[in-house]
Amino acid sequence: MMIRERNHNGVTIVMPVGRLDSSSASQFMSGSPSFSGNGKIVIDLSEVDFIDSTGLGSLVGIARKKREQGGDVRLACLNEKLRKVFEITQAFRLFDIYDDAETAAGRQG
């Protein structure tokens, strides 16, 4: 899995590319220093074409860790496949999900 990072208004936008499953979840979780600390980050999922329960677990794990440290995680750009997984599992109850990463990053909350 490849992980791209960019910055918008001082907020790190992390963009994983590929599948977020049992084979890549641990790599993803350790893939960015911004996953720890108390800042806000946005995970742009536009380039993730598959997610399974382990992948979901990695997102939940990152969010839990960030929130424990006073930070926050927002998700953006879910494609239709991912949105359905979030809908079926009701994982949407745990995350703020935005249409686009810049809006997610833009508003300090």
């Binding site: 399974d52 939940v60 997984v85 009701q90």
Partner: peptide, 19 residues
């Protein structure tokens, strides 16, 4: 799946496998 015992979070993986 080594998910936390928190009921809200563990329900996510349970729903995933229910489908």
């Amino acid at each position: 799946e080594d998910w936390p015992a928190d009921a809200g979070e563990s329900a996510i993986v349970e729903r995933y496998y229910a489908v």
